[in-house]
């Protein structure tokens, strides 16, 4: 098995004018891991993803299996926050999933049958094939998210970046997505997931990256998911109930 999925982040910092949004983030991941990125609002979770992908001006380095992001772009699947998408855009489910194949087809070539087949299979995996001719705005939140997951699957990438995929979606969609992410892990892919709350982190993720402008803690879920870490990240808004449960009150 080739070593595809290691990601190394070293001294990554982001500044907006003089205000620092991320300070000196360093961590490394092994292949075949699902990393949950958690932290309070404004902690810089999306900024971290964008900085790692060089979509945001940053200092420091991120390498993918030893290579800079510019050499592995085709292998990076990105699922944006649902709020970033114009749901009235005149595209159908099928069109969106096909976009996952765009980077693999040279600009002068047509999409091949194989590309369409790959896209269709991705739709099947997410259970969205019967909706393939719908305009994306006609779907429920969970269905919309599954379409974008299907696009990421169709891309056949090695690295996955999902920005808050579980916000405002139904239980069925959430379960489908989680089980697909676990499939990807078995194929040795590396998956970063920004997660908005602390529920279910144990069953969803292998590792947690707890962020609040700086890296509070990074490691296995049991190493990170501790009251002292959460208090350090969430400040006064974290209330520790007893030994192992923490409630976070988001303002």
């Amino acid at each position: 098995m080739k070593d595809i999925g290691t990601v190394d982040v070293a001294n990554l910092s982001v500044y907006y004018h003089k205000f620092s949004a991320l300070q000196n983030i360093s961590f490394s991941t092994a292949e075949g891991t699902i990393i949950g990125v958690i932290g309070p609002n404004g902690a810089g979770k999306s900024t971290l993803m964008k900085a790692m992908l060089n979509l945001e001006k940053s200092q420091g380095t991120t390498t993918f299996n030893g290579r800079p992001v510019s050499e592995v772009r085709k292998q990076i699947a990105y699922v944006p926050q649902r709020s970033e998408i114009d749901w009235d855009f005149p595209v159908r489910v099928e069109d969106v999933v096909l976009m996952g194949r765009y980077m693999h087809v040279p600009w002068y070539k047509k999409m091949s049958k194989q590309d369409r087949q790959t896209a269709y299979e991705a739709l099947e995996k997410t259970g969205m094939e019967e909706f393939r001719n719908r305009q994306i705005g006609e779907l429920s939140g969970g269905q919309q998210q599954r379409v974008f997951i299907a696009r990421a699957l169709a891309q056949d990438a090695d690295y996955f970046f999902l920005d808050e995929p579980f916000v405002g979606i139904d239980m069925k969609s959430e379960q489908i997505i989680v089980s697909l992410l676990h499939d990807l892990r078995r194929q040795n892919k590396t998956i970063f997931v920004i997660h908005h709350d602390l529920s279910k982190v144990e069953s969803y993720f292998d590792r947690l990256l707890l962020l609040n402008q700086r890296l509070i803690a990074y490691g296995t879920v049991s190493e990170v998911y501790k009251p002292e870490n959460l208090k350090a990240a969430y400040g006064g808004s974290a209330a520790v109930l007893n030994d192992d449960s923490v409630v976070v009150v988001q303002s």
């Binding site: 944006p80 976009m99 765009y102």
Partner: peptide, 22 residues
């Protein structure tokens, strides 16, 4: 005609377009 796909993707989802190298 020639650049239909890049034009569509950068219009619909510029972040994904940038991430995938357009």
């Amino acid at each position: 005609l020639v650049f239909y796909r890049p034009l569509l993707l950068t219009t619909f989802d510029p972040t994904m377009a940038k991430a995938s190298g357009l």
